[in-house]
């Protein structure tokens, strides 16, 4: 269970560029929730994910995951509990290292990294099987450098890396936004399969309202650093883009265009 209580975050405090990104955010996720997050630019979606991941500290508030207090924990220690995929396909993988080496790094998330082998043959078998489930042919290119892969392949690989050690919470920060529509659909399909298979608690930020409605069991909309809409259960299942537009008077061009 993820609990966010009374979170505040202001950037550039005390300057003309002061920006209150998160303003008293409260949110609770049950285990197994697959929550899609929508909202306009500057609504605080990515900031919320970065605060959970520990990229920067909160000004005030409490972050708790399955009873562990993450609030003051450094980013690399929180990684034990979290799987993350970023918007930028370059960000989630090491381009100059091989596919299997990247997976081996992810396989050791939350474990001690000592002087044992960085990758073993037994692991290679596991990686090969896991890569095969992506259906991208990466299982035959295990030693290729990740820098040679396309954006979609890299995002699929990052997704696999994020879930190789089952995370308590999966954070997807517009992970298909930089991909072409066809590739985006493929990556989303893989996302859904993995989330369903491992019953992962997931927060997925998206700018695409159709995707927000189509995926997950719960939808939240953020505005000015707070959750303003929270739809779940039956209501979520029957939701249409038109409903969302009418109900909540959305003015964001990008969300309208992506219908």
């Amino acid at each position: 269970m993820l609990e966010l209580k009374g979170i505040y975050k202001t950037f550039n405090a005390g300057t003309v560029n002061e920006k209150r990104a998160i303003d008293g955010l409260d949110l609770t996720l049950e285990n197994g929730d697959f929550v899609t997050v929508i909202g306009g630019n500057g609504a605080g979606k990515s900031t919320m994910l970065n605060l959970i991941a520990g990229v920067y500290p909160v000004d005030a508030g409490l972050i708790r995951l399955n009873g562990f207090n993450l609030t003051g924990m450094p980013e690399h220690k929180r990684a034990r509990f979290l799987g993350r995929v970023f918007q930028d396909p370059m960000m989630g993988t090491a381009a100059t290292m091989g596919i299997e080496e990247n997976l081996a790094l992810a396989y050791r998330r939350g474990k001690r990294r000592g002087l044992s082998y960085g990758i073993t043959n037994d692991e290679r078998k596991i990686y090969r099987e896991k890569l095969a489930t992506l259906g991208l042919g990466l299982e035959d290119r295990m030693t290729s450098k990740v820098g040679l892969l396309s954006g979609g392949q890299r995002q699929a690989l990052t997704l696999l890396m994020a879930t190789l050690q089952k995370p308590d919470l999966l954070l997807l920060d517009e992970h298909t936004a930089a991909l072409d529509p066809k590739t985006a659909d493929k990556v989303l399909q893989i996302t859904e399969e993995i989330v369903a298979r491992d019953n992962l608690t997931t927060l997925m930020v998206t700018h695409n309202m159709k995707h927000a409605i189509q995926y997950g069991n719960r939808l939240i909309m953020m505005d000015a650093g707070r959750v303003v809409v929270d739809i779940r259960g039956e209501e979520k299942k029957n939701l249409t883009v038109r409903d969302l537009l009418e109900k909540f008077n959305i003015e964001n061009d990008r969300m309208l265009l992506s219908e």
Binding site: A79, L105, G118
Partner: peptide, 28 residues
């Protein structure tokens, strides 16, 4: 040998992509 160990790999990852390294729990 060293840069093939878990620790050595994590050092190479640190240089290759610090963001990814932190996300994978590496103390950069």
């Amino acid at each position: 040998w060293f840069f093939g160990t878990s620790l050595g790999c994590s050092i190479r990852a640190t240089g290759a992509n610090p963001n990814m390294s932190r996300a994978q729990g590496i103390n950069v």
